[in-house]
Design a protein around this nucleic acid. Structure first.
Length: 357
DNA sequence: AACTCGGGGGT
DNA sequence: ACCCCAGAGTT
């Protein structure tokens, strides 16, 4: 069945790409990394560096969350050469809080690859881009389409939803993704970059997850999901795994000047290479705290943080101590300059619970 | 094909 | 609470 999820459907009308483009010409969102359809018509071309940077930041991340990071990165590093020349640690500091930190490590590796292997110029084809770190099927297509109008299907979560409704796809998208991509490929017009951005805007503002505004949609005339009367039924979703809870302890160690002891996490795994406060391992059952050293440990309450596949509850403890000899692998950070540390949101919550930040 | 990997904003 | 977001890399 997965092989023929589309072929078995009653045939929807072909996608009217020109109607989508006409809608986009009127309703395109204004975004810091975007060249408007009007400017594109006047041959203004986007900077591939800025398109790449925005696309990586936007992987599984909302526009609202990305904007200030994008502005900060382009201010600090206006070109791929500047980003490649920066130390990875500086990139992680600026990425802190945005999540999925492998993106930041791959971003930096990609910048270096573009400089060292491509003379500082991004490849223009999706196939070329696909070979670079952190650039997969979606991002390679998006950059090639937006920056160079390569006629290639750009399939993200928004577009998957639009197509699932248009075709009344009755299997989870995961089981028909390549079919959807192939179908979308047959619809891509000459203005491939505008078309990609148009379908994403359409999915974000009209064909929204919970509230499809079909009366405003340029694809309504041929849409099977709308014709059925309940487009929000699509895309049908697969079973989602339960989210277990893990428990642990976090230790906020201050010296007499109010500096706080921080250290770097492991090279691999969750929050790899980011900065943390010391703490216990995170287990599925609560354990009594094992303090790093003897002292007057004070309870600072609890922090709850939700990751993709588990929920975490940390008991926060603080102590004021002269710099103990047990602490050697980390460093003492000025509590007024924590913004210059690569602290993920979890550990900012921990520090806030202890009265810092 | 399934799993790992963050965080926040909307409903 | 739950959803899901301009997904990629690993196993």
């Amino acid at each position: 069945m997965p092989k023929t999820a589309l072929a078995q459907k009653p045939r929807a009308l072909p996608i009217d790409a020109q109607a989508v483009l006409a809608w986009y010409d009127k309703h395109a969102r204004t975004l810091p990394w975007r060249v408007s359809p009007q400017d594109r018509a006047r041959n203004v071309r986007p900077d591939p560096y800025r398109i790449w940077l925005s696309e990586v930041m936007l992987q599984q991340t909302t526009i609202a969350a990305v904007q200030k990071y994008f502005l900060r990165f382009t201010e600090l590093w206006p070109t791929v050469g500047g980003l490649a020349a920066a130390p990875l640690e500086a990139v992680l500091v600026e990425w802190a809080g945005l999540g999925y930190y492998a993106r930041a490590r791959n971003l930096h590796a990609c910048a270096k690859a573009v400089v060292e292997q491509h003379g500082g110029v991004f490849p223009t084809t999706a196939a070329g881009l696909l070979t670079l770190p952190g650039i997969g099927a979606y991002t390679s297509a998006a950059i090639a389409a937006i920056a160079d109008d390569e006629r290639i299907a750009v399939l993200d979560g928004n577009v998957e939803r639009v197509l699932a409704r248009y075709l009344a796809l009755d299997v989870p998208v995961r089981e028909a993704k390549e079919e959807l991509r192939g179908y979308l490929q047959t619809t891509v017009p000459e203005r491939a970059g505008d078309y990609a951005q148009a379908l994403m805007d359409l999915g974000a503002t009209i064909c929204a997850p919970r509230n499809a505004l079909c009366m405003l949609c340029p694809l309504q005339p041929g849409c099977t999901g709308a014709a059925e009367g309940n487009p929000e039924r699509y895309p049908v979703k697969a079973e989602k795994a339960a989210r277990p809870t893990r428990y642990g302890h976090a230790f906020v160690i201050l010296d007499r000047d109010g500096d706080v002891y921080l250290r770097t996490r492991a090279d691999k795994g969750l929050l790899a290479k980011m900065t943390e406060t010391p703490g216990s391992s995170w287990e599925s059952v609560k354990q009594e705290p094992t303090y790093p050293f003897t002292g007057k440990w004070q309870s600072r309450g609890q922090v709850v943080h939700v990751f993709t596949h588990f929920r975490l509850e940390l008991d926060v403890w603080s102590v004021v101590a002269p710099q103990p000899e047990e602490l050697t692998e980390g460093w003492w950070a000025d509590r007024r300059e924590l913004e210059s540390e690569a602290l993920p949101s979890l550990f900012r919550k921990v520090l806030a619970a202890a009265g810092l930040e």
